[in-house]
């Protein structure tokens, strides 16, 4: 899966778990917490959505790797590579 595809899917997931976010306003390398006041429940919801959508495991210690759009793309790419 291409990084642009992954990014588009991640934005879709972000809008689903946080419909109060305008996906066009997402700055790729800024933490969701700084940008959107993400709390621990938002972070968990995002982790669940990513795990289910891409079929990759997300460990309890991996949430930090999903903290921004850019780091989430890297994390998903890594996860998909391991899966393949």
């Amino acid at each position: 899966m291409e990084p642009t595809e992954i990014q588009a899917k991640l934005l879709e997931l972000l809008t689903r778990i946080a419909p109060d976010i305008d996906p066009r306003s997402v700055v790729a390398d800024r933490d969701f917490r700084d940008q959107f006041d993400f709390d621990s429940m938002d972070a968990l919801h995002f982790a669940v959505a990513v795990s289910e959508a891409f079929g990759i495991p997300v460990a309890d210690t991996d949430y930090g790797k999903l903290a921004s759009l850019r780091s989430a793309v890297d994390f998903v790419q890594g996860g998909l590579t391991r899966k393949a």
């Binding site: 879709e12 689903r16 778990i17 968990l44 919801h45 995002f46 669940v48 289910e52 959508a53």
Partner: peptide, 18 residues
């Protein structure tokens, strides 16, 4: 509903759906 496809039904504790 919505442009986003619904996640598969599961026994999830956490359902991040509107």
């Amino acid at each position: 509903a919505g442009p986003v496809e619904a996640p598969p039904a599961s026994t999830s504790t956490v359902t991040a759906t509107p």
